[in-house]
Computed example of a mutant assay.
Amino acid sequence: MAHGAPIDTSARIRSQLTAFVKQEAAAQGFDVCRITLPQSSPQIEAGLDGFLSAGHHGTMEWMAETRDRRARPDALWSDVRSVIMLGMNYGPDADPRLLQNQPEKGAISVYARNRDYHDVIKGRLKEIATRFAARSEADVKVFVDTAPVMEKPLAAQAGLGWQGKHTNLVSREFGSWLFLGSIFTTAALAVDIAETDHCGSCRACLDACPTNAFPAPYKIDARRCISYLTIEHKGEIDPELRPLIGNRIYGCDDCLAACPWNKFASLAQEAKLSAREDLKEPDIEFLLTLDDPTFRRFFSGSPIKRIGRDRFVRNVLIAAGNSGQAALIEPCRLLLEDGSPVVRAMAVWALSQLLAGAEFNDLRARAKHETDPGVVREWARGA
């Protein structure tokens, strides 16, 4: 929307506009709406710098490239005077960790079991922003995890919750299950009070992490995080971490689900965020058969579609290797001839876990035509 000069508002008008935007947020299905200033604290900037300098962002180079805009909202847009932070509940109907007891099933993160939340949230934000701009004559910009905006610190600053020891937002009303979005505006609005930290001595989220991705409370090393590994990471997944991934094929909710504050959480009310039945506990055997067109059709409208078929099947093969299910041997064997080296490499690894040593060695002896370095390396590892 239009870029213009800051809008001055009196205390009365500021109060009216604040009430208006919160009413609009509720009408669009947001469960919470709070407002903060665009300035971040020195602690937030120091935390970001420490995360980047330690290399904890892994291959997400864009985080370092956008450091300045990420650290300070007013560096992203110099005219912004208020940041409206909104949250929409996506609480699941059951503890997602229960699926770990079904190794033949694939575990998909709760947030990705239906429509891409970016599309759902952004559409609602645009509706609110359009009406707010017409009422206030202020300029607005909307963001949903697609720009260098530190949404979690801003949400804590605005009072939606606090950043827990797992670095995610925790709400006293919704636990760890809130999608976040923001509206930046040139209007001056009434600012809400920041939430205080209520984690206390609890470390349930830290202890729940399968890969020990938290070097310390309030710090995360993405390079060990299953969500990063299965979604953002494009290359080879560390062989030492593969067994720890279990059947998690897209993301991981363990640290979120472990939070005691979830006892106050409620079921998501937005239908587009409620889980599709076929994504609650999909069969690994079926997912191993997906070619690219079928993958695109099956995950149409889903955030999973964005990582592409090859990376997704790579994840499924790791789950297959961890499953101990003999029924998955043949589907994995068929993928040794797949056109993707990434898929072939993980098919080798899965078979190294599922087959007895002699069977695997016999299979390897018949695979001498393979030339891709990554696949050859997996054959050697499985010896």
Rank of each mutant, 00 (worst) to 15 (best):
G50P: 14
G123D: 05
A25T: 01
R67P: 05
L86Q: 01
V80N: 01
T59L: 09
Q28M: 12
G123P: 01
L48D: 10
P73A: 06
C33E: 05
K105T: 09
K122C: 09
Q39W: 08
A107I: 13
K122A: 08
G123M: 07
V110S: 12
A112T: 06
R113G: 05
E24G: 05
C33Q: 07
R70S: 02
H56S: 10
G47L: 03
R34I: 00
R115K: 11
D74K: 02
D119E: 14
N89R: 07
R97Q: 13
A64F: 00
M63Q: 05
E61F: 00
Q28A: 12
G106V: 08
H118Q: 05
S40E: 06
Q102Y: 15
G47Y: 03
D49W: 10
V80H: 03
W62N: 13
S109N: 07
G29H: 11
A107V: 15
M60I: 10
P73H: 00
H118V: 07
S53L: 12
R69E: 04
G58A: 06
E104P: 11
Y117R: 02
M60G: 02
T66V: 13
N89T: 11
P42V: 10
L125C: 12
P73D: 02
V80T: 01
S78P: 03
D95R: 06
K105N: 08
K126L: 09
I44H: 13
A107N: 15
V32L: 10
F51V: 02
S82Y: 00
K122P: 11
D49P: 05
D95A: 08
S109T: 11
I44T: 12
A27W: 09
V83D: 02
A107S: 14
R113Q: 13
Q102G: 15
Y117G: 01
